[in-house]
Nucleic acid binder design. Structure first.
Lengths: 334, 334
DNA sequence: GTGAAAGCGCTAACAG
DNA sequence: CTGTTAGCGCTTTCAC
């Protein structure tokens, strides 16, 4: 492939001049710019990214690590992130952890080998052990999304998870429901624990006993929620409502309920967290708490670029965004 | 960051030996391997990808270009591709064209700057002009998915698009429908044109006139289909059935029909191409033609890796996969 | 197995 | 603006 030397020869200028034109790193006359750009076009020259990275120490690469790209919530995050990074002149590596922390570490290692300039990370665990592992693996500016991680100095952008849990649960309680089965995510993930905490708060605030025995442990997966809800619905003292803490579990629960022949919301009401792209074509349409995904993602990227380019230091603080309840048809009065 | 020199010093061996251990590129004794690997772990050394790329001329990077990552069909492709490439020791750049060919070219340029070793491309146009542009931009092994492009020598992996259109249309015809509105994708994209051709075949094979006036031009987008179906349904001589050529248009049509107060399949039947992850929670559940996405994706990657690693030459041939009709509730007898 | 050396393509610094 | 130069971290070759 053509190199910068070929361009210099063709344009009849010095190599350093070509570099100056490409990077606008030194003043050059319009005539020279024109000659160089023409030469670049004629030869079909494209600067060699790896050579630039090696020499300049700046890869202009950003890593985005999410639990699951086929989850519509995260594919939106991915799309917005890529666009924003591209605009800022960065390329993006987007990778799935599949909710597995060993994969997360392996992906971080790959990102490291590419010397990414920054990371946006939706982590898989919140505990301090995991925090230590992350600190050992990460040595670039990083912004956390979603899952809080103990003991890391990074900024974190999330919605007010507790309030999200509170809003959904309050809605069900206000409709008269008391026996509410809650489908939780993995223990040890702040996202799930905080949403659950919000649910507890909604009960206690109303001087109601929180039915701890109706909390169904899960792993955010659709399949697990599917199986669990079938068991719960077949048992004695069927709950009158369910609350699912994330989108894939909502799918699993809806499928599971449908498969038992029960009807929603006639036999059981549902409130959820996270939205679908096209609720109109679902049956029933889910009543759900949504987060401002676009805004949160843009803020996270802006914070990251600030750290990368202006050397801003992370505050280690958490930026909370306000969740919003959207009432549709899946939850009805008891 | 630590370099290979630091590792060599720490392990008390030569730089070339460290390189040999990392790449298994020369015989080394177990004792030496052990010392080197220990040193790597102690120092926390990660090879510098850009330096390797520059020196070896092999980036071990693969580019995947798809129309839209938030389309569940393509996010599945992305997920499978990343996994397979990772297993083979490649990292992946996944990018959206947003169905825009100028974006496609810009992304190809970025891929070029990173010197990707190979490309999997779902292109946005099929014409020869576009083929020439691609040839000017691409100089690495490439496998096409989905959209055929004229005049390029690459292998292409698709389903039998015409048969897919034939299967769906035949199903509606066999249910007695004659006034079938067909929601097409962009003209100039083989995917759409061939599916449409299959629909025509289903009519003519039954000695029926193909209602050309009921073909609704579109662009694969959800919004356009939404608007179009509302217009069609409000017009005189409402069709008794609709056939949507891709998944986002199916969503748009279902939403559009719902918004007019019509019921599916009572007032209008629907057959579609491409499946959803969770048809069970949809209303109605779509009768649709599906492609073997996993298999096709794996074949495409295998072909690509073969060309990259063993220098196999592309055959320029098209590999057709068999579509399958899945009958659910969205299409009823007239 | 060692140790030295060349060079991938680029940026950046410098004297002219 | 030119022309030259060093060197980023690595792979690869070669004589030992």
């Amino acid at each position: 492939m053509a190199t910068i030397r070929d361009v210099a020869k063709r344009a009849g200028v010095a190599i350093s001049t070509v570099s100056a034109v490409i990077n606008r790193s030194a003043p050059t006359s319009d005539a020279v710019i024109d000659r160089v750009e023409r030469a670049i076009a004629e030869i079909g020259y494209t600067p060699h990214g790896a050579a630039r990275t090696l020499r300049s120490g700046n890869s202009r690469l950003i890593g985005l690590i999410i639990p699951d790209i086929s989850n519509p919530h995260f594919s939106r995050v991915a799309r917005i992130t890529e666009r924003a990074c591209m605009t800022a002149g960065y390329m993006t590596f987007v990778y799935d952890t599949d909710e597995d922390f060993e994969q997360e570490l392996q992906i971080l290692k790959m990102m490291r080998s590419q010397r990414v300039a920054g990371l946006i990370l939706i982590s898989t665990r919140s505990d301090a052990d995991h925090g230590r592992r992350l600190m050992a693996e990460i040595n670039v500016p990083t912004v956390l999304r979603g899952c809080y991680v103990e003991g890391v100095p990074f900024d974190i952008v999330t919605m007010d998870e507790q309030r999200a849990g509170y809003l959904a649960t309050s809605h069900l309680l206000d409709l008269g429901h008391r026996r509410i089965a809650i489908f939780a995510g993995r223990t040890g993930v702040s996202t799930s624990e905080e949403r659950l905490e919000g649910a507890r708060l909604a009960f206690t605030e109303r001087k109601l006993r929180f039915p701890e025995e109706l909390v169904v442990p899960g792993d955010f997966s659709e399949r697990r929620a599917f199986e669990a809800v079938r068991e719960v619905m077949a048992g004695p003292e069927r709950p009158s409502a369910v609350f699912t803490l994330s989108i894939l579990m909502t799918v699993g629960v809806m499928r599971g309920v449908a498969s038992t022949g029960l009807s929603m919301p006639r036999d059981v009401s549902l409130a959820a967290i996270d939205d679908f792209d096209w609720p109109e074509i679902m049956n029933p349409q889910p009543t759900t708490v949504v987060q401002p995904v676009e805004e949160m993602t843009e803020v996270a990227i802006a914070k990251l670029l600030d750290q990368i380019e202006r050397g801003t230091l992370p505050t280690g603080r958490r930026l909370l965004f306000e969740p919003k309840l959207i009432v549709r048809g899946s939850a009805a009065p008891l």
